[in-house]
Design a protein around this nucleic acid. Structure first.
Length: 462
RNA sequence: GGCUGCGUGGCAGAGUGGUUAUGCAGCGGACUGCAACUCCGUAAACGCCGGUUCGAUUCCGACCGCAGCCUCCA
């Protein structure tokens, strides 16, 4: 029985979908003005696994991840670059998709864009004004009147008075209350703008998600996800907008993933301490990055370091070494397994505990190695297939073992390596150990590790 | 200042009121010409101080330390 930690109630709850057998999932995606960093990668991978596991559990999942393609930072960046907004956002949507594909992240069912949802956004703001939750200010902006929504603060665990007491709320004369937030922003003359009943302008950040989630999934849906930093104010404001406009609960389960950290500090654009996905992929293969992300629970902080990536690499190398040369059985589904599957299922049912699930997979790997050692090819074939079946849920272990272990090679490399291995084996037959070791040293200096199995020498890259 | 959350062995990272997490690294052994791979075995932890309990790393309280949110941020 799947349990999900609900940020709204701050506890794990049994997951019950609104409509039996179906899950409607909305995740806040990227603002596309720059390359994705590892924090973005974490969101993508975490909710990719959530989606995969729900589907694997038999649910028909509708997964929506929006794209914010108009906001202040996009405008600023486009101006800096002397580039049109559309060209900028298209470019970074493309970059984002490259990163997501590399990481094995399946595409969401829909990726709505703010700029393509203007009619819905404007209609929703009109509804909010009509219902008294919002007001058009003198300066051409439209604001949400926080005092009109009784439940304001229920997600982030704050109340309006506490927030007012805080010193950091910006003063804005046009607002009735400093806590009110903008739904529609009047455009300056040179800024991109859309026509609206309040003049030309653009939507505030929060309203697009309320409008797009309702459009794609309806007014009441199952799960809403995103990074922890979106809990307040973004998601709090979404609730105020959606529930104010629709008069019903908007989301049953809120899921927030923890931050990626560097040296125990949040990785973020504003701190400038981030690594882009692109930079990391230049040094470690995508599956290593994905494995690294899944070694910790999604709500825990994830500390990024070379050492952690190296550990992930070592672990994956061991998995693929175990899988190497084993012909997996056909038609193995992990759910039919009696020995490991219950533990794996329990781990995933417990709020998607991928770290624990991976420990089960480590046990499968050990059993596989044992079977290999005993030349029990039937058992090995079964366990290899089981490992890949588990891996399918996490998006791991889907490539050929040699593709992972050998890395990118051209034919010349391979020919050279294999020729050296032949030389070495000839020396070994002649018991010329000095020569054999000399050749091995040469391979080592090329970054090649030799493994002598019975009758066959295999190699891999360090 | 307000509100969250966290503090586990050398490192990473789960979990539990009393019995092995797991991975990386280490140590001993098997295998190997030597290695590597693999297997077998092994050691090592629960921030600090009280309390509840037959028993607490696990529950409660204080303290210390860390992180996050309160402003754009995944």
């Amino acid at each position: 029985m799947l349990q999900i930690h609900n940020s709204l109630t701050k506890q794990k709850e049994v997951f019950t979908p609104i409509e039996p057998g179906k899950v409607k999932l909305y995740v806040c995606g990227m603002t596309v003005y720059d390359l994705c960093h590892i924090g973005h990668a974490r969101v993508m991978v975490v909710f990719d696994v959530v989606t995969r596991y729900l589907r694997d559990s038999g649910y028909e999942v509708t997964y929506i991840r929006n794209i914010t393609d108009i906001d202040d930072k996009i405008i600023a960046r486009a101006n800096e670059n002397g580039e049109s907004i559309q060209s900028l956002t298209e470019r970074f949507i493309d970059e984002m998709n490259q990163d997501a594909d590399a990481l094995g992240v399946l595409r969401p069912d829909q990726e709505p864009k703010a700029t393509e949802s203007m009619a819905e956004i404007i209609a929703m703001i009109e509804t909010l004004i009509a219902k008294g939750f919002a007001y058009a200010a003198d300066n051409g902006d439209v604001y949400y009147d926080v005092s009109k929504f009784d439940d304001y603060g229920k997600l982030s665990g704050r109340n309006i008075d506490e927030l007012r007491a805080g010193e950091r709320v910006a003063i804005n004369e046009a607002k009735n209350d400093p806590l009110d937030f903008v739904l529609w922003k009047e455009a300056k003359p040179e800024e991109p703008a859309w026509d609206s009943p309040w003049g030309r302008g653009r939507p505030g950040w929060h309203i697009e998600c309320s409008a797009m989630s309702a459009t794609c999934l309806g007014e009441h849906f199952d799960i809403h996800g995103g990074g922890q930093d979106l809990q307040f104010p973004h998601h709090e404001n979404e609730i105020a907008q959606s529930e104010g406009a629709h008069g019903c609960q908007s989301v049953n389960y809120w899921m927030h993933n923890g931050f990626v950290r560097i040296d125990d500090e949040k990785m973020s654009k504003s701190l400038g301490n981030f690594f882009t996905v692109r930079e990391v992929l230049a040094r470690y293969s995508a599956e290593i990055v994905r494995y690294f992300i899944l070694t910790s629970h999604y709500r825990s902080p994830l500390n990024y370091s070379d050492d952690s990536l190296e550990q992930a690499k070592s672990a994956l190398t061991r998995y693929y070494t175990a899988l190497r040369g084993v012909v997996p059985q056909d038609n193995v589904n992990w759910k039919d397994d009696k020995e490991f599957a219950p533990r794996f299922g329990d781990a995933m049912d417990d709020d998607f505990n991928t770290a624990l699930a991976l420990s089960v997979m480590a046990d499968v790997r050990q059993a596989l190695n044992r079977a290999n050692e005993q030349s029990n090819s039937e058992q090995a074939g079964y366990l290899a297939a089981l490992l890949r079946s588990f891996g399918g849920v996490l998006g791991l272990f889907q490539q050929a073992a040699d593709d992972f272990l050998l890395g990118d090679n051209n034919d010349d490399d391979v020919a050279k390596i294999e020729s050296l291995i032949e030389q070495r084996n000839a020396a070994r037959v002649a018991k010329d150990w000095a020569m054999a070791d000399q050749v091995r040293d040469k391979l080592t200096s090329m970054g090649i590790v030799i493994e002598d199995a019975a009758g066959k020498t295999s190699w891999r890259r360090v």
